[in-house]
Structure formats: C-alpha cells, structure tokens
Amino acid sequence: METIPVEHGLILAGILFCLGLIGVLTRRNIVFVLMSLEVMLNASGLAFIVAATRWGHAEGQVMFLMILTLAAAEVAVGLGLIIQMFRRYQTVDISVLSEMKG
C-alpha cells in the first residue's frame, strides 16, 4: 500500500492558494484577477480531496463538487461584470473603479 504524508498534499494546496492570492493582489487586469481567484478556489478544492483521502471518505469529493459549482457560477457572474465594466470604461484596469474613495 502506497502512502503519501498528508501534510505534503496540504502544503501543495497552501502553495497554490498563496500563488493565487499573490495574483489577486498584484494584477491590475481584472481578467487576471478572476483567473487567480479560480486558482485559489481550486486550491481549496484540493485541500478537501486531500482530507477525504486521509479519512478514506467520499464526502470530500462531494464538497469539491460544490466548490466546482460555486466556481462555475462565480465565473459566469464575474465575466458578465467584466463585460459590463469594459463597456462603461473601455478598460480592464480595476484601479479606475475607485469611486468609493473616502
């Protein structure tokens, strides 16, 4: 029976999550931001799968399915918003959306 240390799987998920986070914080192009968000969601899905394997349960995969659904819905709405924004401002730069400045 082959074994993998459980922390290695979780560390992989953590690294992917942090890379996605860096993408969200760094990029100004809103399409990249949305892509980085997908990475982060995917990383959390990975963590669920790792945990499911650790306990030998199927619930982890069910949870991943939920995350997948969430990601699909989020991307649909997010891309809709991007299109609307591009129509209004003729740019994909999120720093132009700063009307909430105090």
Binding site: V24, L25, R28, I94, S95, S98, M100, K101, G102
Partner: peptide, 11 residues
C-alpha cells in the same frame, strides 16, 4: 487618519 485607508482601490 482613517479616511486615508479608504483608497477606493480593490487591491
């Protein structure tokens, strides 16, 4: 002071 933190920048 605090109002400076409200930059309007999402990032």
């Amino acid at each position: 002071m605090i109002v400076k933190t409200q930059t309007g920048s999402l990032r």
